[in-house]
Design a protein around this nucleic acid. Structure first.
Length: 683
DNA sequence: CATGAATTTTTTTTT
DNA sequence: AAAATTCATG
């Protein structure tokens, strides 16, 4: 038992051994937060707590997996298997599946991802005859989601709506809910809200959870939003054996309703809470931490903390300034290739971290030119590919014939002679009667109003699909093959992409879905179509990126948001310019503090070495725009940006520009002039 | 109805 | 620059 505590510092030990009552662990970046949680779980078990009585909530599936694995390393696989470790969302899905009726949901409810959500929002607007000119669907989607995450209901919003725009939003919101209900689907936010509602109204379920989960832990507590907080309170509020771990300096999900004040007011919400601070950083060198500390010190509202490095001073931070994004990427690629060639590092030691999803493109190109292996994490690009979305829509439709969004998506793909006109008409009729489009085709009187040819084509289509009404269970892969065969999806790919090369690429996407299905069946006990679809929507990210990343030695490319919680030997923090980091929109919306935390997260991912890069100009919407060094670069050096630093020809950047050397150029395009190079302090 | 051309819009971050 | 959407033609 004492072995477990070996290698923990006094604060960590305290966090691990405080068994009863509320505990808040304020854990700075790299201070051994995950270690504390995992050892704590192991310690509880050695104390005689049954693993089934322990619940740990994480923010991502990846974090959940890692946590379980690490606990398994301490107490053995068999015990670790009995723990409940997962994201709020996956926890909620399980609970809602088990109590669908009590929660007011259909037994086969599906979860819609954000593009389905967007489609539903558009449907709602169309139904209300609100032109997309008056409000942008994606904006509306964001507003609805944000309000839900702030625990507002459409009713209460409408009743307090002030102004035409709010009223419009409120009405659209209600219609959106109606759409989801008709399609028997819920969005991500609903998973939390329905769970909350269930726990509030159903005492039996609530007491069951209270009794089962005697010890509750929440990771990344600073990212907890309203509904999540309430759920935790309902489960752990009685026994109060709640340990939350987080860092207010790493709160980067405010735009999603995360509420930093929750971590600041924990002591008030849970009386007598023990507060433990972890400020020794075991991850990064002093050079890196000094930069991080300096930047974050500019945030006024925070629990003051200063990270102390347990490691030495280390290498100086390096800055590179390229002429444009190609040169920026090329400079990084060149360095990486060189280090690996000299055997100083391997590719997987490196990560390139960026703010927005447009940035990785240039890096992908340059990495390809130099044959540097890389994995692009997130980006959702795979699931955004048309053919993948089509296949998924087919699967969803088979799983839930009322899934309107999926129905509309594939009803004429491949073309079946069902035109847009007829579909619009059908949607109209559905609207008038307050029923789903699918239902219109099921009701002969209503279908009679549509062109006979269309009705016929839809009937044929549905007959084809009806063969696949039953969930195939573990025979999933063959079943999907047959389904694709039956609707002649291969034919659609051939038709839509005459160029054999792109055709092959597209088909590859379809095959990848099959691969994923196979993996799913292999890894999941009682796999089925339903579990597969759920896994796809809930852990879209890690179900693929993950094993790829492990499989090969490759550079990691990802957003700052997805980098949280991870660490790399050598980090390239890229595009550190005004307008990108901080993002222009954050500047406009006055949320620069959160951007600063993002910068802080980025810096503190690096263990031994950090390179910050930027450009002199980059193309935006297709035209070139001058770029300016981020204010955070000045802050990092303890300076404030000069007034005119963004004016053309304004102040010199806070980095000394050395005339950089030779450039390799594969072909096309300018040999770029030297990327600026600057050691921060001397080595 | 389907196809391809012309146009418009797009860029925050994610479970 | 690329993608999405609308328009015009067969």
């Amino acid at each position: 038992m004492t072995d477990l505590l070996k290698g923990l510092n006094p604060e960590q030990k305290l966090a691990v051994t405080t068994r009863e009552g509320p505990v808040l662990v304020l854990a700075g970046a790299g201070s051994g937060k995950t270690k504390v949680i995992t050892v704590r779980m192991a310690f509880l078990m050695l104390w005689g707590v049954h693993p089934e009585n322990i619940l740990a909530m994480t923010f991502t599936n990846k974090a959940a997996g890692e946590m379980r694995e690490r606990v398994a390393g301490l107490v053995g696989k068999d015990k670790a298997k009995l723990l409940t470790v997962g994201t709020f969302h996956s926890f909620c899905v399980k609970l809602l599946r088990a109590h669908a009726a009590e929660a007011g949901l259909a037994p086969n409810f599906t979860i819609c991802d954000s593009s389905d959500q967007l489609a539903a929002v558009k449907g709602a607007l169309r139904e209300l005859r609100i032109g997309e000119a008056s409000i942008q669907p994606s904006v509306l989607q964001g507003r609805i989601s944000l309000m839900k995450n702030k625990l507002m209901s459409s009713e209460s919003f409408l009743s307090t709506a002030a102004g035409d725009e709010d009223e419009l939003v409120g009405r659209a919101w209600k219609m959106y809910e109606e759409h989801l209900r008709r399609a028997r689907t819920v969005d991500f936010d609903d998973l939390l809200l329905f769970t909350l509602q269930l726990l509030r109204t159903n005492e039996k379920v609530r007491t069951e959870l209270e009794h089962r989960f005697r010890y509750v832990m929440v990771d990344e507590y600073q990212d907890t939003n309203g509904p999540q907080y309430e759920i935790v309170k309902l489960i752990a509020g009685r026994h109060k054996n709640l340990c939350v771990v987080g860092d207010d300096d790493q709160s980067i999900y405010g735009w999603r309703g995360a509420d930093v004040t929750k971590i600041l007011s924990f002591e008030k919400d849970f009386r007598g809470a023990k507060v433990i601070r972890l400020e020794t950083n075991y991850r990064s060198t002093a050079e890196i931490l000094e930069a991080a500390n300096k930047v974050i010190a500019n945030n006024p509202n925070r629990h003051a903390k200063t990270l102390r490095s347990a490691l030495g001073k280390g290498e100086a931070i390096v800055m590179l300034r390229g002429d444009d994004e190609a040169s920026e990427a090329d400079a990084a690629a060149k360095e990486i290739a060189e280090r690996v060639r000299l055997n100083h590092s391997k590719f997987s030691d490196f990560a390139v971290l960026f703010r927005t999803q447009t940035q990785p493109r240039a890096f992908e190109e340059q990495f390809r030119l130099r044959a540097i292996p890389y994995v692009l994490i997130g980006g959702m690009s795979f699931f955004d590919r048309k053919e993948v979305r089509d296949v998924l829509a087919y699967l969803r439709l088979a799983n839930n014939p009322r899934d309107e969004v999926s129905f509309l998506r594939v009803v004429n793909c491949p073309p079946r002679g069902i035109g847009k006109g007829s579909i619009d008409k059908a949607v109209d009729i559905a609207t008038q009667h307050g029923i789903s489009v699918v239902k219109v085709f099921e009701t002969p009187e209503l279908a009679a109003e549509l062109p006979a040819a269309t009705v016929d084509a839809v009937r044929t289509f549905r007959n084809t699909l009806s063969v696949f009404a039953a969930d195939p269970g573990e025979a999933l892969v063959g079943w999907i093959r047959q389904l694709l065969e039956a609707v002649n999806y291969r034919g659609e790919v051939d038709r839509a992409y005459p160029d054999p090369k792109t055709r092959e690429e597209r088909w590859q996407g379809v095959m990848e879905v099959l691969d994923m299905a196979e993996n799913h069946v292999r890894r999941t006990r009682k796999a089925s179509l339903a579990t597969f679809l759920e896994a796809l929507t809930l852990d879209a990210e890690d179900s693929r990126g993950d094993d790829k990343q492990q499989k090969k030695d490759a550079v990691t490319l990802m957003t700052l948001h997805s980098a949280k919680g991870l660490e790399f030997e050598r980090v390239y923090l890229v595009g550190v310019e005004e307008g990108i980091l901080p993002h222009a929109r954050s500047v406009a919306e006055d949320t620069v503090e959160e951007e600063r935390r993002l910068m802080y997260v980025g810096i503190t991912r690096a263990k031994r070495h950090l390179t910050i890069t930027l450009t002199k100009s980059r193309s935006k919407y297709g035209t070139r725009v001058d770029s300016h060094p981020s204010r955070f670069l000045y802050e990092m050096k303890g300076e404030t940006p000069p007034k005119d630093w963004k004016a053309a020809g304004g102040a010199a950047p806070p980095v000394r520009v050395e005339k950089g050397g030779k450039r390799t150029r594969a072909k096309k395009k300018s040999a770029k002039s030297g990327a600026a190079h600057l050691p921060h302090k001397d080595l």
